[in-house]
Design a protein around this nucleic acid. Structure first.
Lengths: 212, 212
DNA sequence: TCGTGGATTTACCAAATGGTAAAAAAACAA
DNA sequence: TTGTTTTTTTACCATTTGGTAAATCCACGA
């Protein structure tokens, strides 16, 4: 059997683990951890339940593996925020990347939202080890921009929270948006315009002419 | 037994139904619908499981009742948005009310978030009958303000989405915020300052002097 | 081609869970 | 007090669910 200390995962193992994780993403993101069952995941993956447990040590193992693997992808847009770039451009581009991600990876967004909502019981270590340092680093970058007078005074931590909240909203609360806007096309083009205007307004330096 | 067609619920009935709903709010908001069990709710309420099923027709009945009762409270801050008031003041006050609500009713916020995340399977009718009309009405109010030149051109629907997302974020993603900001005091005072600055900037009319 | 180890299935199991029937207890009206 | 109705408990039950043991199948290298 595939042990955690095994050297070389076979071709079949790589394929099936990938298939299982993809099925698990589908099911977990739709029903939450407790709401998802191994049978559902098995059916979605086209494998038998015992076969799934041949590749993973249990339901929680699948869930944790999923979250860990996704963490990297999830943080990627923030990693790209460049301290050397133009502050306003960097932040507005970050907003756009996050919104794009909420369109292209809505399942991942909902998976994280579910986990955080429950108090992050299974992903907390990852948040401390990966998210926290990155968050602190980028907050410092933004604070530096503010200190250098390249941005108006603002709260880096809550700015980032607002970016997360507004962009992920379109994936996490998609059901609500669909009811309120109609099931037509993707609301994100207009969302993009709105968010650029909103964060753009916040990031605009007030004319130094009329000080106060 | 208490039938849906019963005339007068007794004192005991009113008390116990309230106790059960409060316990259910605690448990459902913490674990989601599937993650919550009748035993947990019973324990939290200090009643036996069959006794709970004496007052409600089942788990789903409790959940639906909870969501329906909460809907009113939930929409209240938006109802208060006054078409006759000063546009900028009205919207910024609405932001403040929503943020206050996320501090005082975090369980309710998480309950709704959970339900919407799952695709709103049980509350969808309520969303259509209550939320949608109110949303449309208030969007029209804001659109009217824009048309009257009292606000800069902006997207009412997505403005409201942004307000919901940013304010509810502090309840729904509390676990994350606590890891990133430290478990100290409530982050909402600084959140309040940030959100007022952000939405304030968006709502500010650009000086009509330099038109484009 | 044959043996060996990895991959899969079959047949289960114990615990948890939503729910019920009926007896017992408590509350209340006369 | 007594009879009646409401409330609560006790004892269950069927299903679901995460998980396991062991037999079987199958890929693949010697």
């Amino acid at each position: 059997m595939p042990e955690s200390t095994a050297k070389k995962p076979s071709r079949i193992q790589r394929r099936n683990r990938r298939v299982i994780l993809d099925a698990a993403l589908e099911v977990f993101s739709k029903h939450g951890y407790r709401g998802a069952t191994l049978d559902q995941i098995a059916a979605e993956a086209g494998l038998s339940k015992p076969n799934i447990l041949y590749y993973f040590n249990g339901k929680e193992d699948i869930h944790v593996t999923l979250l860990s693997q996704l963490m990297e992808t999830w943080l990627d847009p923030l990693v790209e925020l460049d301290p050397e770039g133009d502050p306003r451009r960097e932040i507005l581009d970050y907003v756009e990347r996050k919104l794009t991600m909420s369109r292209e990876l809505p399942r991942e967004s909902r998976l994280f939202a579910n986990e955080i909502l429950q108090g992050a019981p299974r992903i907390e270590p990852e948040l401390h080890s990966h998210l926290k340092p990155l968050f602190d680093e980028k907050c410092a970058v933004i604070a530096g921009w503010v200190a250098a007078g390249k941005l108006p005074p603002l709260d880096p931590q809550h700015l980032i929270f607002s970016i997360w909240a507004t962009t992920q909203h379109y994936a996490d609360f998609e059901a609500q948006a669909q009811i309120l806007l109609g099931p037509e096309a993707d609301p994100r083009p207009r969302a993009q315009a709105h968010l650029q205007a909103m964060f753009g307004a916040l990031l605009d330096l007030p004319e130094p002419l009329a000080n106060r």
